[in-house]
Every structure is written in C-alpha cells, then in structure tokens.
Amino acid sequence: MTVLQAVATYVPPVGRPLSEVAGELHLSASEVKIYEKFYGLRDYRVDREADGAELLARAARSLPSLDRAAHRVRYVLHAKSVPPSGPHAEPPVQAVRVALGLSGAVGFAVTQHACASGLLALDLAGRLLAAHDADALVLLLTGEKADPTVNQVMPAPTVTGESSAACLVGRTGDGDELLSYEWRVDGEFRDGTAMPPATRSRFHQRYPDTLAAVIRAAVRKAGLELSDLAKILPHNVNRASWVRVAALLDLPLDRVYLDNVPITGHSFCADPFVNYRSALDADLLPPGRPYLLVSVGLGAVYAAMVLRARGTAGRWPR
C-alpha cells in the first residue's frame, strides 16, 4: 500500500497581476484580457529571491513531521517538468537533501512525464519503499523556477509560477491510501513546445477527450464511479479547459477544485499537491471519500490517480 502521509506547500507571497507583467511574459493587452476573462488566470506568482532548491526547501520545512521523521527518509525525489534546472553538478534535489539534513537518503529527479511526473513519482515512491522497513519514507518534492522563457514556450494558454509542494510518502501509517494510477502518452505530440501550429491545434482538439478517458480509467481501476469522487484536484493550466473536461465527464464544474487557478496559475508538477493542501484546509476531502489527482505534461502525457482520504480531514497543519 502507498500512503500519502503529509503534504505541505510553499506559495510565493506576492502575486503580480498579469497586466503588470505583460511585457515580461510577452503578452499583449488583449491577450491579458482573454487570459483573465476566459481562462480564469490572474497572477504571476514567482519568488525571485529563491533558487530552485530553496523553493523546494520552503515547502519541505513546512512539513511539521519532517524533523521527527528525517531518519526514516530513504529517498528524496524531485519530480520535474523541465529537465535542465541548473549546471548538471548542482541539481536542486541534492542541495535540498543536504539542507534538510537528509544526507543519508538517496536523492534523484524523476522526469520525462513533464508536469505529470509528480504523479508518476508518487507511484514510484510507494514501489521503492516496498523493499524497505515498514516505517521507511520518501520525501517527494515538486516545484521549479518559472522563468519568462518557460512561460513563452508553453503551448497552452497559461501562466506558470513557482509554487512548490513537499509530500511524505510511506507504506503504512496515517494518511491517504493510493487506490489507482493511470497514464497515457500520445506520441504524436512528442515535440511539446516545438509543435507546428497544425499539430498544436490537433493536440488542443484531442486533449479533453483523452484526459477524460484517463480519468475514467483511473476511477474504474479503483473500483469506483465518477460520482464517488469528493473532488478532482487538477493541474492549474487554466479554467476553460476544465469546463470542457467536466462537461465530458458529466460532472458539475464545482467538483473540480479551481480556486487556485487565479492565485498560483500553473506550477509545473506541484499543482495537484498544492490543490490537495488547499482542499484539505477547506475541509473538502471528507474522511473515507476518494478523490482524484490529475495532471497533463508537455509531450502529451496524461495521468490520473485516485486516493482515499482517511482519518480526520485537516489533521495536518500547514
């Protein structure tokens, strides 16, 4: 069994309105209006004082249980969307591993599922722990620097920010049980940011149906119905795409947690975990109810994961 034991997040405190950063992000005035009115985006939330490792450390230090559990952490995983994140000899995961006093843990990055790598890494965490003592843990980190060029090359209408998340994953103990994980890769769109316009258009057409199919498959694999889900905790690319997907799933839009879209925008692999923390704090994940984490990565990697909330919602302080 894979258990999501605790989640903490770091959301940069200052969000600058899109109208203020339009030049930096190469957005025209009319694009800003469309982003705000149609896509539900509002803020560009980055922390220019923090490097990539510090973004991760700020989330991890908010885990109240990490100090007590540090000696049980066997692996530190950094799920990344964009593989190059600094000179190859100074990766953020190694810097944060040392900064958190986890020098006895093995640290590495998980990539190639782009912004869906976080869900892959959560599944991997449980699998790695199967070879260890029952109380062993994985610290799973998500979040990256969101430089202006990254924003320019994103094929979807979105604003990418620097929120991060840290998760403690175990095989036993209090926390939420992983019930299923489904993924799909559509190789036609492998070019990611370099897709020609016609291919990009086809990707946008196919996206809602494929994402809905992966969500249905994950729910079915968990032995559940869509109506059983307390919430869908999505990637925050934009609001409009979720309107289409919710309609395809025949779910009310309020079943999809979209409150963070205007606040954080999209934050690489961190979105589902940032949304999880927010939903938990808002008592939206009742004990015993399943919920779904979902994300889509560049290169057309779709992933969905069903977990069941256990214990008392809101049990983990931020």
């Binding site: 599922h113 090359v153 890769v185 492998r190 990611g192 290169g299």
Partner: peptide, 14 residues
C-alpha cells in the same frame, strides 16, 4: 541534460 529537451522521449518511444 538532453541537448534538445523539447523532444519528449516518453512520446518518441510511446
């Protein structure tokens, strides 16, 4: 890192 990280290997080998 991959010299051209735009190309998804997961997609290329899908």
């Amino acid at each position: 890192p991959d010299l051209d990280p735009r190309d998804s290997v997961a997609g290329a080998l899908a």
